[in-house]
Amino acid sequence: MTENSNVSFDFDGRVVVVTGGATGIGYAIADLFARSGATVVIAGRSQDKLDAAVASLPASRAVAIRTDVGDPDDVARLVDGTLERFGRLDIVVSNAAGYVAGDILDVSTSGWEGLRRTNVDGFFHLAKTVLPHLAVSGGSFIATSSVSGLAGDWNQAVYNASKAAVSNFVRSLALDWGGRGVRVNAVAPSLIKTEPVAAIVNDPTLAARFEDRIALGRIGDAEDVAPAVLFLASDAARYITGVVLPVDGGTTASTGQPRI
């Protein structure tokens, strides 16, 4: 049972696709959707991680389709496979992402291209493929952006830029597709306890520096992010579109000045 076992949403009969759904924030989102009655298709590049995720999700509520979102043919196969199996598509969560840190002078061209391929091109391929189907169902498209894409953050310019692209994609697509019945939103987490940032989270000195920036005084868990995604996908958010919602414990409430 997850920390979100007491969170209540009703997605009975809905079909949800979550990219990057085998681990971290994506897994927490897939798990909560499945526990809320949805049928969940999780996508990712590692078959072993996908198999482990499906095995741990509620029985008969989840299937996995191995997908590299940077490959448009893979994305088409993901969507076609979902429609062939379930006959509908209601909610899509664009969560697959990579992370590259460092001064721009230290980031290789291949490092930038790999990051862009997943974070930006992957979003583009997924949105272009699923939006027409979501227009049929009156569905919802939700992305995982980052607070680092809302302003900026030290020593990760290329990552910040990729997430800023996602945030502006979301706002612009909300304008273009609202009249066709599709809501497009995003969550923007701050630092969350996931594998890519384990070195920070597990270092008491580094973790304390981050915690000092957070109004709630703790680094977030993946289970802190998932309910916000389900809210944006739910009928309770039926008049919300074009929003990039910080899920950050109050990090962006600060001007950046140190505590006094």
Score class of each variant (00 low, 15 high):
residue 2 T to D: 15
residue 2 T to N: 15
residue 4 N to G: 14
residue 4 N to P: 09
residue 4 N to L: 13
residue 7 V to S: 06
residue 7 V to T: 08
residue 10 D to N: 12
residue 12 D to Y: 09
residue 25 I to E: 00
residue 26 G to Y: 10
residue 29 I to P: 07
residue 30 A to R: 00
residue 33 F to P: 15
residue 34 A to Y: 07
residue 37 G to R: 01
residue 41 V to H: 12
residue 42 I to T: 12
residue 49 K to Y: 13
residue 50 L to F: 05
residue 51 D to T: 13
residue 56 S to M: 11
residue 57 L to Y: 10
residue 58 P to T: 07
residue 64 A to V: 04
residue 64 A to I: 05
residue 64 A to W: 10
residue 66 R to V: 09
residue 70 G to F: 03
residue 75 V to A: 05
residue 77 R to E: 15
residue 80 D to Y: 05
residue 86 F to A: 06
residue 88 R to W: 04
residue 88 R to A: 10
residue 88 R to D: 08
residue 90 D to R: 10
residue 91 I to N: 04
residue 94 S to A: 14
residue 99 Y to A: 13
residue 99 Y to K: 09
residue 100 V to G: 04
residue 102 G to K: 12
residue 106 D to L: 04
residue 108 S to W: 09
residue 116 R to L: 05
residue 116 R to A: 14
residue 116 R to S: 14
residue 118 T to G: 09
residue 124 F to L: 12
residue 127 A to Q: 08
residue 128 K to R: 15
residue 130 V to T: 00
residue 132 P to S: 10
residue 135 A to K: 03
residue 139 G to W: 01
residue 141 F to T: 02
residue 143 A to I: 01
residue 143 A to H: 07
residue 148 S to F: 02
residue 152 G to N: 07
residue 155 N to M: 15
residue 157 A to R: 04
residue 159 Y to R: 08
residue 161 A to M: 05
residue 166 V to S: 04
residue 168 N to Q: 12
residue 171 R to D: 12
residue 177 W to C: 05
residue 179 G to V: 13
residue 184 V to L: 01
residue 184 V to Q: 01
residue 184 V to P: 03
residue 186 A to Q: 08
residue 187 V to I: 13
residue 190 S to D: 15
residue 191 L to H: 10
residue 196 P to Y: 12
residue 198 A to L: 11
residue 199 A to T: 12
residue 199 A to S: 15
residue 201 V to M: 04
residue 209 R to F: 02
residue 213 R to E: 09
residue 215 A to P: 12
residue 216 L to A: 04
residue 216 L to K: 10
residue 218 R to M: 06
residue 224 D to F: 06
residue 230 L to S: 02
residue 231 F to P: 00
residue 235 D to L: 00
residue 236 A to F: 10
residue 239 Y to C: 03
residue 241 T to D: 06
residue 244 V to K: 00
residue 245 L to H: 01
residue 247 V to Y: 01
residue 248 D to C: 00
residue 250 G to E: 12
residue 250 G to R: 11
residue 251 T to I: 03
residue 251 T to D: 02
residue 255 T to V: 10
residue 255 T to H: 11
residue 255 T to Y: 14
residue 258 P to Y: 14
